[in-house]
Amino acid sequence: MTAADTTPATTPTTTPTTGPAEEVLSHEAVLTGEPVVRLEGLSKSYGEQVILDGIDLTVGRGEFVALLGPSGTGKTTLLRILGRLEDASSGRATIAEKTSVVFQEPRLIQAQRVWRNVVLAAGRGAGARQAAHAALAEVGLADKAQAWPKTLSGGEAQRVGLARALFREPDLLLLDEPFGALDAFTRRKAQDLVLALWQEHQPGVLLVTHDVEESLLLADRVIVLGGGHIQADIRVTTPRPRDTTSPEFNATKREVLAHLSQVSPHVSPDHPAHRDYGKIS
């Protein structure tokens, strides 16, 4: 909670909840050393409503972090702050400059061909097109480079979104429930793809999800958010690929669900149907 001296451009803050926010968070973020995210006392409130209340969090390069929590606990708000789509009310944040976001829906620009969606503003030359092809090849869509987004399936579109995010070779990759709209089969394949790409490029990843199993399948750390605070920060040490039926896996899962049940009264840690509790609450 005390002022850190690593980044002088940012403003230190102390007050967690009371009173209107005075300090506006600066996004003059510079990556210093290994961490790609360092949050200190980060708070966000809309008027009287406090969404995030003094969040401290550090994510290192190459670390895969999953963020769980009931709807309305500020998961998406936190991701939006990290993605520079919103400003925090107070606190300080140091965020890697090269940050990419994969959104819940693909958010492709229908009027641009697939490869252009991947490249976006990053150059117009022939090199850009080749690089886009390479990025698309990584997600298995090399043949769709010239296609229009409207001709893609949901899974394909989301993979283009992933290629777009990786194209910048980000130090921090933010994933906002990117598999939510996919069917089970496609979802599974997309998860494998994300994992493979993460292992290949080693960015810091922050995955916002509703799905406990998904978080345990993918992440090194599972953070449970509730009431604007970090309720739990659980390390998952099982080596990958992980077996969802193993006792070890299920033990961790129960632990996570237990934490969740504290922040969300509708969740019982023993009920198997509550794997995707977000949709129940």
Binding site: L85, I109, A111, L120, A121
Partner: peptide, 27 residues
């Protein structure tokens, strides 16, 4: 135009002019 698409421009560090040229005008 969907505001969400304009956010894409912001997260991917597109300048205002690039957003207009690549997103706003085509859509």
């Amino acid at each position: 135009i969907d505001r969400k698409l304009l956010e894409v421009g912001r997260t991917f560090d597109m300048s205002r002019w690039e957003t207009i040229r690549l997103v706003v005008v085509p859509l």
